[in-house]
Each structure stands twice: as structure tokens, then as C-alpha cells.
Write a protein that binds this DNA or RNA. Structure first.
Lengths: 98, 98
DNA sequence: CGGCATCCTTCCGGATACTG
DNA sequence: CAGTATCCGGAAGGATGCCG
């Protein structure tokens, strides 16, 4: 979603930039976004074939929202890491061990 | 998350207002939020026992973000419904059948 | 009241192989 | 290139029963 924020992307571009995603999941995700009217799929029947994915106007409004969430996650990543360490340390207390 | 937006809530309050959630999932969710430092769990050892959940300052910032997402979903709910109907109708085209 | 432990089913999503 | 089809393991999460 957020990846499509600035302009259309080809299938293979997306696949490469979302490191670790399987073709299956990428297609499934794109299809559901298309079904929901958030992404527009454009097929150019050439050889080799070319398929572009772009946000629809409504898709752009969601993308903005998602972008905010991503920024939040980046900004608080370290806070969460610290919280988890404290919690997992065994709620024993916030004073360091003797 | 968003439910805690305005003030602490008791376990049973949450359970009732999130209709359909199992005690297991509610606890699991609250625990992970607590672990991440987003929610504060306060136990009042009385009889019957009482446990309150409240957002931490960082939790409030996420809650705001999530609130935006919820508003987005409500506003575009019908748009998505329409898109799906069109899509499932069999991509045949946007002109009505003869 | 506010949980936790356990069992059991569901289904998400990865790996792999094949196609227009 | 841009997928689809199939198989399959593991994790998510509901149901149930018990406890401080």
C-alpha cells in the first residue's frame, strides 16, 4: 500500500522491494486490494507482458493513513523494544539487581 | 486500543464492549499491549478482584493513529462494499447486462 | 471477577512446480 | 514477466474446565 504511494509500480518491482514476500502472497494481496477498489491493475499485453499497479483515489487516502502508522512504528520501535526487555526480565521491579 | 481512548476500563467492561471476543484473546491482547508499554495494567486486590487497563502516554499516540484508521474504515465501508460487488459480479464490465 | 491451561480445529501463508 | 495450482506445516484462536 504505502509502496504505491508515489506512482504506479510493476509486479516485479513490488516483489523485489517487499523482500521476502512470496509471489503467491503478493498476488493475493494485490487482488484483494483491487477487489476493494483501492488499487487499479493495468495489464499491457505485450511480450513480455507488463502489469502495473496504482492506487485509486480512495486507495491514496488509505495509503496516507497507513503511512502514518508506519511512521509511528518507526518512531516507537526502540521504546517498544525497551518495554519488552523490561517486561521479560521478570516484572521483578525497576530497580537493578544487586 | 481505541476503546481505551477515553479513560481506564475494567476487564469485564472491555469484554462486554468488544462483543464476540473470547476471554483468552482479550487477555492475550491486553498482555501483549502491556508488554509493549502501550497499556498499563492495575490490579486492585479486593474481593471481588478488580483490574483496570489504561493507555500509557505512548499508547495514547498509537490509539490516535488507530482511531484515524477506524474512522477511515467507517467512511469507506460502503465504497468497499460496492467495489466488491462490482468485482465479484464477474469483471464483465461496468455497463449493465443487456 | 479475572484470569490460566489445555485441547483441537481452522486457515494463513511458505515452498515448489508449471503456464500463457 | 506475471502469474496459477497444489501441497503442507505451523500458528492463531475458539471451546472448555478449573482456580485464587
Amino acid at each position: 500500500m504505502a509502496l504505491l504511494g508515489d506512482g504506479p509500480r510493476r509486479y516485479s518491482e513490488l516483489r523485489r522491494s517487499i523482500e521476502g514476500i512470496s509471489p503467491r502472497m503478493l498476488t493475493l494481496t494485490l487482488r484483494s486490494l483491487e477487489r476493494d477498489g483501492l488499487v487499479l491493475r493495468t495489464v499491457t499485453p505485450s511480450s513480455p507482458p507488463r502489469v502495473d499497479y496504482a492506487l485509486t483515489p480512495v486507495g491514496r487516502t488509505l495509503s496516507a493513513e497507513v503511512g502514518g502508522l508506519i511512521r509511528w512504528a518507526e518512531e516507537h520501535r526502540s521504546y517498544i523494544g525497551r518495554s519488552r526487555r523490561v517486561y521479560d526480565d521478570g516484572g521483578a521491579g525497576d530497580l537493578p539487581p544487586v
